[in-house]
């Protein structure tokens, strides 16, 4: 019994070490293989800085866009009944199930020179594919499900009782959303946003298709890592990879903190929620 348990633990840990820990160490070891000087030079080269700037820019656009869309979609899906509700939920999941490369190719098919909207865009001198807008679009596409997927399960559990109570006290739709719904989901929302940010910065497949890899203009940080690796500059590639790795690790820590926080507040609020429901007169609930 104990021997079996020991063995299982050992296998589990060895597996984790092999798949997660060693690669993680290898990234940092490679990045620092030629010392701190080479590391600093690699992450502050003008091409690396351009890539970092573009990565941050696309995250700065994609994340707020997903915040607005995610909240609106989750609110509509969980607080209202309408035809096509499940279809909408399934559609939102599409970027999870489809390969990002396909996502990128579809954008080329739509907005490329010979795409459906290509001639119109060209006539109005709008460049989407092989330019920054294409990268932002691709990033929004792959990060679409994150906020919605975090919010929907929680908002489904929280009944509409409190919104109804607020409504019965004369609150407007916006006030209900701002003062009742939003505070209840704030931790899940933050959690979704953090995952969304991490994914936005790490996006490779779709970006690689729509970027056209113009140095200093349409190269994001993950694309830059690939380019310098192909130029035999392993140290620079891994140095830039550490930036992405650090982002991932920070995400992990924040996620853990938020998880604990969310569980605590959910617990407290569930108790108080029942109190409110109990105090609401039966007549106003219809």
């Amino acid at each position: 019994m104990t021997a079996a348990r020991l063995l299982l633990t050992f296998v589990g840990l060895a597996w984790l070490a092999l798949i997660l820990l060693l690669p993680l160490l290898a990234i940092f070891a490679q990045a620092l293989a030629k010392g701190w000087g080479a590391y600093i030079a690699a992450v502050t080269s003008s091409e690396a800085l351009d890539a970092i700037r573009l990565t941050l820019l696309s995250a700065l656009i994609a994340v707020p866009a997903n915040l607005v869309f995610g909240l609106a979609a989750a609110w509509a899906i969980t607080k209202f009944e309408f035809r096509g509700r499940t279809l909408l939920l399934a559609l939102i999941d599409l970027p999870f199930s489809v390969s990002p490369v396909i996502g990128g190719l579809v954008f080329v098919l739509l907005y490329g020179a010979h795409g459906w909207l290509g001639p119109w865009l060209a006539a109005h001198d709008v460049q989407i594919i092989f330019a920054k807008p294409g990268i932002v679009l691709a990033t929004i596409f792959v990060t679409l499900p994150f906020v919605v997927r975090e919010l929907v399960p929680l908002m489904q559990v929280q009944t509409t009782a409190r919104e109804e109570a607020a409504f019965s006290l004369g609150a407007s739709g916006w006030q209900i959303f701002r003062h009742v719904t939003l505070p209840n989901v704030r931790w899940a929302l933050l959690y979704g946003l953090i995952l969304c940010t991490a994914r936005a910065m790490g996006e490779f497949g779709a970006a690689s298709v729509v970027a056209g890899s113009i140095r200093g203009r349409t190269v994001t940080l993950p694309l830059h890592v690939e380019i310098v690796f192909n130029e035999y500059d392993a140290v620079a590639a891994f140095a830039c990879a550490t930036l992405l790795t650090i982002t991932a690790l920070v995400t992990l820590v924040l996620k853990t903190v938020l998880d604990a926080r969310e569980r605590r507040t959910a617990h407290v609020e569930l108790a108080s929620g029942q109190l409110i429901t109990a105090a609401t007169p039966a007549g106003s609930r219809a």
Binding site: V108, G112, A113, H114, G115, G118, A122, Q127, I129, F130, G212, S213, I214, R215, G216, R217, I227
Partner: peptide, 20 residues
């Protein structure tokens, strides 16, 4: 002068698709 590098055929494809 800006550079874009990829496989030769992939580049031709990209230019056809609108890489300026």
């Amino acid at each position: 002068i800006e550079q874009s590098h990829n496989g030769s055929s992939k580049q031709a494809r990209a230019v056809i698709d609108g890489l300026e």
